[in-house]
Every structure is written in structure tokens, then in C-alpha cells.
Design a protein around this nucleic acid. Structure first.
Lengths: 196, 196
DNA sequence: GTTATTCTGTACCGATCGGTAAAATATATT
DNA sequence: AATATATTTTACCGATCGGTACAGAATAAC
């Protein structure tokens, strides 16, 4: 049984609101007043429930990769490597070009460059990007074994290329790129697919 | 004739030092103490010589595009569109992978996401990225007229794709991508070139 | 030398940053 | 009802943010 005064807000709803703020302004650009106002709670409640700004950001980041950005993991299970990449990139175009969220990918924009106080956040995001790249590389290694990709394909280079396109689309979306423009980018990018 | 006490520092050297700080930490992440210390001057001298932080950033940005990032304009004057893009992208790989500078492109990292106080800087950077994209598009339009690119090439899509690769390489470089890794990305990206 | 002008150095400004102490409030347990 | 526990609220903390007032110092013009 829970003792004490019950909290008056829903943690998951609050995290969703925090996600919106961090997504739009990045880690450093999201101020605590902006966060608490969006979450509808006051500061001590935030600290009691989520630790501090950094811990909140990481919780929000997990929520982001499991929610809006879940298409990456989904895509990797496609039957062929090419289909996996197409699902991932077109899914990214749809996500990044969707005007109902902040523009761009949170893992890219969160702290691409930052002051020294956010260095650990920056490294965390970098690690997540390379983890995604490695997941793609391993998918390609499997595809080579399956005969799904030419044997002379370099899986690391291919994964790095796909990651590059994905990250570049995020930067483009941070401007004003539309969903269709991003999809055309994917059309172009897929022309580089191995084995013509 | 110059009246009054002469300034004791070299403006251009100071701008180069400021460039290094802004390049590494971005607009918001670069604090005034970090700037003044790197520039070797104190705060009132900075404001007297350059206006304020925003004006200093824009001066530094011009210096960046005319200096380290000058390969873009140079590349556009190559004889063929393909050669122009190759020069630009391989030049970008060399620049972004050079460990003697901060990692990544200042026009991408400077303020990709930021607090509300840096919104105008963010928009300025976005405008510079689209300007570069438009310059490439116009180069491709000319190439189509020259018969240098297939007539069914969409110059806007191609330019957006090249911009995407370039921006994505900047994000990759913000991690720990090496020059060679970035060059392999360019190798892959060029496989998408029109007219196989 | 005197004056006008411009730069340098110190010290400071209000605003905002992330984070917290402490009292008031609301529940579960006894 | 009394107590223990946990959350809310208000008010505040020191640190840092970008920016500046002001006096001292160095030059050119007179």
C-alpha cells in the first residue's frame, strides 16, 4: 500500500509533455520552467518523481526510442536488408516530416553541440546513434550470410551510409523540410543500394 | 588618423580563437568567459570590438564559410556537376574528419536546437544551409542545360540529397567518425548519382 | 604640456540557470 | 482521533548567464 499523500499527476503523461519540450529545444535549451509548465507540475515534484534534469532527459529519451522512434527496431526485422532500410528511412521521413511534433530526431538534436555541463548527455546521444548504426551493420552481416546482400558488400560502410542519410534528414527537418521532400531524399539515397 | 589608445589585440586572431570556441560548443554552449579567455581579451574589449555575442557569432560564421568551409564555393566551379559534388563531399570529409578542429560543421552544429533566446541564430543557420542547397540546385540546373546531367534529373531532389549526406556527415563527425570513414560514406553516396 | 579620444581592467548589473529547504496538505495505518 | 509518510507549495539558494558603468591608461591632435 502506498502511504502518504498521493501524487496529483500522471507520470507518463508528464513524461510525454517533457518529451515535447526536450524534443523541441534540446537538452540545454529546455529550461526547468518550460518543463514544469508543460508537465503541469512544480519543480520539487519533478525532482521527487524523476531525479533531476539529466535523469528526466534520459527517461524521456527511452520513451522516445520506444515510442515515436520505434520504427527503427521494427524495421530491422524486415525479411530483407533492403526492405529493412527502406522501412527505416521512409519511416524516418514520415516521423521527421510530421508537423505535429517538433522537427528532427531527438537523438540527433538533443545535444549535438553543447556547453561543458552537458557533455555526458552528448556522449549518451552519440552512443545511441552508434548503437543504431551497429544494429544495422549486424543486420547487414546477417544479410550477407543469407545471400541477401552481395558478398563484397562492406556492412560497416553501408550502415554508416544509412546512418548518415538518416541523420542528415534530421538536420533537413530541423529546417522546414516536408515529408515528401524527405521521401524524395530516401528515393535518391536508395539508388546507392549495393548490387545494381 | 586613429585617435585614442590603440587596441592591444589583433581582431582577426581574436576572431579565429572565437571561431574555435563557437565551433566546438555551439552558439549557446560557448560562454562569454570561454570566449574572452580564448581570445585573450576581456569582456568590454569584446563588446567594443564586435558588438555582442550574436554579432560576434555572425562575424565568426562568415569567417568560417570563407575559410575552413570555403571548399563549397570552390567545388561548385568544377567543370562537371558530378565533379563539383565529389569535390564538395570529399572536401567535407577531409574537413569534418580533421582532428585538429572541432568535429562537425559549424553551420549544422551551431544551433541545431536551442533555447528561445537563440532562435534568430538558428534561423540564420537554417537559411545558410538552404542557401548552400540552392546553390547546388542551380549548379545542377545548369548541368542539365549543358547535357552534363540527364534531362529527367530533378535538380532540387538531387541537391537536397547531397545536402542530406553532407549534414549527416557532420553529425557522424560530431561522434568520432574518422576522415576515412567519412570518405567511404561519400563513396557510397556517389553510387546514387543519376544516369547509371 | 594639455586635451580629446579610445581602449583596458575591475567591478558590478539584473536575469536566469539548475536545484533545494521547509512548511503546509493529503493520504494510509494504527 | 493520532501518527507516519509522501506530495504539494512557496520561497529561496549559490552559480552562471549576457551585458555594462566607470575609472585608469595609452595614444593623437593641438
Amino acid at each position: 500500500m502506498a502511504k502518504g499523500r498521493p501524487r496529483e499527476f500522471d507520470c507518463e503523461q508528464a513524461l510525454d509533455k517533457a518529451l515535447e519540450v526536450f524534443w523541441r529545444y534540446g537538452y540545454e535549451g529546455a529550461s526547468l520552467p518550460a518543463l514544469t509548465e508543460a508537465m503541469g507540475i512544480n519543480r520539487p515534484s519533478l525532482y521527487a518523481a524523476f531525479g533531476n534534469k539529466e535523469a528526466l532527459f534520459k527517461k524521456v529519451l527511452d520513451r522516445y526510442t520506444a515510442g515515436p522512434a520505434a520504427h527503427l527496431k521494427c524495421a530491422l526485422s524486415a525479411p530483407t536488408a533492403r526492405e529493412a532500410v527502406e522501412r527505416f528511412l521512409y519511416g524516418s521521413a514520415d516521423l521527421l516530416g510530421d508537423p505535429t511534433h517538433p522537427r528532427g530526431c531527438m537523438v540527433v538534436q538533443g545535444a549535438l553541440s553543447c556547453g561543458e555541463g552537458a557533455e555526458s548527455i552528448k556522449q549518451d546521444l552519440t552512443a545511441r546513434r552508434t548503437a543504431a548504426e551497429n544494429a544495422m551493420r549486424m543486420r547487414f552481416e546477417q544479410a550477407i550470410l543469407d545471400g541477401d546482400l552481395p558478398k563484397d558488400t562492406n556492412p560497416a560502410d553501408l550502415a554508416r551510409y544509412i546512418a548518415t542519410v538518416s541523420h542528415g534528414m534530421s538536420v533537413l527537418a530541423a529546417g522546414a523540410a516536408t515529408r515528401d521532400e524527405l521521401r524524395h531524399v530516401v528515393d535518391m539515397a536508395m539508388r546507392a543500394w549495393p548490387g545494381r
